[in-house]
Simulated scan of single mutants.
Amino acid sequence: MKLTKEDIQFIDNYLDNSDVIYADIRMEMVDHVASDIESRMESGDMRGFYYVFKDYMVENKAQLLNDNKQFLKSADKKIGKTFLKELKNPITPLLFLALCIGFYVLYQNSSLETFRACLSIVPLIGLTGFILTYVVYQGVKDNKRFSVVERLAFPFLAFYQLPNLFLIRTRELNETSDLFWTIGGASLALTLMLVLVIISVKLFMSYESQFKNIT
């Protein structure tokens, strides 16, 4: 016994109204719920879909909402694994080295005020990258919400604050060690944010392919 498209859409709407807001999580839950209801109907429950569904949700809604929380934790783990994988990419340390050289050349050929001004925009570079990728992705997907996509905001926020720790050391820069810490810190922060932009694009493309049939 197979459910109709209208039945499937009814399940999706119900979960959406029950605060399962992310389309990827909801899609997996819809498949699970639909399969269980079909099994019940095939096992001899002769009632219509609505009545079987109603009883099923009475029994299982609490567990489904708990599963929703577990899916969000899985999304964070997926981001972490993808991020670590990208850090191991040989291009990442080369990017860090290039940024260090670039900041050092900037320090040697500009005033301290100019150097500090350039460092101060480092957080905005990563933030702008995330906003642009997120806005573009949301536009492609007609504003559908995906768990991994939105959870990316948390590491971006953390790395956004990181350069401020090193900007404090640019007040004097009397010691060579202060200069190295400042340049290294700013380069590290910018590298991490650029890596996040890269994995954002990769995850967006993965979701676009995986969930392209979501209506």
Rank of each mutant, 00 (worst) to 15 (best):
V149G: 00
T182I: 00
I199K: 00
S43I: 01
D31N: 08
S74Q: 13
N66W: 06
V122M: 09
E175V: 08
Y107N: 13
A186W: 03
I168V: 15
N66E: 14
A75T: 05
N109Q: 11
F166Q: 06
Y56H: 07
S35R: 11
D24H: 06
I11C: 08
V148N: 09
Q210T: 15
K73F: 05
F53W: 01
T182Q: 02
N89V: 11
L64Q: 03
I8S: 10
L15F: 08
L152H: 03
D55V: 06
D55I: 01
F166T: 06
K88E: 11
G102F: 07
I79V: 13
Y50I: 11
V52Y: 07
I214T: 09
G185W: 04
F49T: 06
L87Q: 00
L194P: 00
S209M: 09
V122P: 09
M193S: 12
F204T: 01
K5R: 10
Y22I: 05
K77I: 14
V195M: 06
L127M: 15
D7W: 02
D19K: 09
K81E: 13
K73Q: 03
V58L: 13
T114M: 15
L119S: 13
A117Q: 14
D36E: 10
H32T: 10
V135G: 04
F204G: 13
L132R: 08
T4S: 12
I125T: 10
E86N: 11
S177W: 13
T182S: 13
V149P: 01
K202L: 13
V148M: 10
L194D: 00
S111I: 11
A186N: 12
D24W: 01
V105M: 14
N89E: 12
H32L: 09
I125M: 14
R26A: 00
Q63D: 12
P155T: 01
S200Q: 13
L196V: 05
I91F: 15
A34W: 02
Y104I: 14
D24Y: 03
Q9N: 11
Y160K: 03
L97D: 05
L15N: 07
P123Y: 02
L94K: 07
S147F: 06
K2T: 09
I183K: 03
D12T: 10
K77Y: 05
P90Y: 07
F49L: 04
L3C: 05
F159W: 10
L95M: 14
T92I: 13
V52R: 05
N109M: 05
I125L: 15
I168T: 15
V58F: 00
I121M: 14
E175D: 12
D36A: 11
S43E: 11
M205W: 06
A153C: 07
F10Y: 12
N143V: 01
D55K: 07
L194F: 07
I91S: 11
D16K: 10
